[in-house]
Design a binder for these strands. Structure first.
Lengths: 141, 141, 141, 141
DNA sequence: GTGGTCTAGACCACG
DNA sequence: GTGGTCTAGACCACT
């Protein structure tokens, strides 16, 4: 299966796993940003943790270093990462955007979008509950 | 706050409501496409229903007519809309892309993405059930 | 004097003037950022104003479009600019980082650094006052 | 707040105080250079004074010895420091770069940059005078 | 026409 | 070895 074309892949690097899908419309650098954000919010990575180097990630994910730099850079501007040239990129001390319950707020945001979409599809709360219920170990790919 | 710039807005036109957010990353024309698709899948609009004219929509939504034309055009290519020059744009007879259970498949797709994201945020099934539970008519904006 | 090498230059574009010095150590994109920030803080540019297009600025300043894009991009991440692909880049509504007296705070920041430096050079307040005094229309270059 | 990451700190070593901020854009080794230069220009250190050893400074400032070596090295190249193997690093006899009025020229340079920046922020001479006036012993951190 | 994404590569600065 | 800056150019998406 040595595909030369875009396929979703999953990579495990340090404490963070990157699952990139180059063909799903969401820019690669944005997928990277999200996965780092979520790794922090969920507690898989913490203040002071070092991220993979740009170059190693680039090799691992088989993408251009600049793409990763762009992701790291945005997170640095937002105060989530700190880079020290020569020694690497680290998760900052700053609590991401609003302290304690950043994770809860993110969850609510994702949940909100989900419910809106479901409503738009005409799914009511009852039906929704059943759907969630039905999600047993059907969690693959 | 007489904003000259991008803000999310909600418009009610015929049977379809458009809630556009020019600054959320998703292209406007794609937001329009989705809302029409969902209106059909959920049964709010049916074969033969007439859509707003491009011009009226453009005025209403305060966006470029080309943007709407692009959305209508893509939907026409996919066989979901048909335009009859001189009389307007209508929802076609064709069952949208995959017959009977198009809606179900869409629902599963949205659900899948949602659960993946929640998992990434470290929310397990139990917690998820509670969250959904908690969603009483707290449906805002 | 058709120098092929780095020289400071001053350009006047719309309401904003860019004086770039490619050889002063400060990255070009960062000089651009600062000049936009200051143009806003000083009131020369206001919410809703359109910035020069990336390409026109690139031609004008004779630098690579990506460099300008990088500057605009950072300002967008910080919420100072908003871009609408297809129509341009605009100054956002958001009051820069702390509302009303953003300018005052910036002034204090610059002033603070200045006084620290002067102190390090052994200049006391009295001497400082005299120096400022002496700055009549000796404002050249 | 047991930060593992960059924070500005102030250290007092012999007659020279180092206030380093690893996250302010200016490279650490350059901050060291400047502080030594200013200590000399202001007369806090004089010809023949001995500087802290690289190792002790490295421990004190909690930074990489190479960084300090780089700073000392550049100052040595410029003739401001001399190292005598086995006994340490000293301030040279040479008047720093331009004899008598090196300090004055440095002051003018700093002053010039300051006034340019203030002008860019729309601060005129009158306002400036007031600002300086207002700087009583409000010298913090 | 607008800006965005991604690649490629050169060169620099830092530790 | 680290990341940063800048260039160049291809291709895409949006208005």
């Amino acid at each position: 299966m040595n595909s030369t074309i875009a396929e979703p892949k999953l990579y495990n690097i340090d404490r963070i796993s990157f699952s990139l899908d180059p063909a799903n419309g969401v820019p690669i650098y944005r997928q990277i940003i999200q996965q780092i954000e979520y790794a922090i919010l969920s507690g898989r990575m913490r203040s002071g943790d070092r991220l993979p180097t740009i170059r190693s990630l680039a090799v691992e994910l088989k993408i251009n270093p600049n793409t990763i730099a762009k992701a790291y850079n945005e997170l640095e501007i937002r105060g989530i990462l700190v880079t020290q040239v020569g020694s690497g990129t680290f998760i900052s001390d700053k609590k991401p955007d609003g302290g304690e319950d950043a994770r809860d707020r993110k969850i609510q945001e994702v949940l909100g979008r989900f419910i809106d979409e479901m409503q738009n599809l005409g799914v009511d709360k009852r039906e929704l509950a059943k759907l969630i219920e039905a999600c047993d170990e059907r969690r693959t790919r």
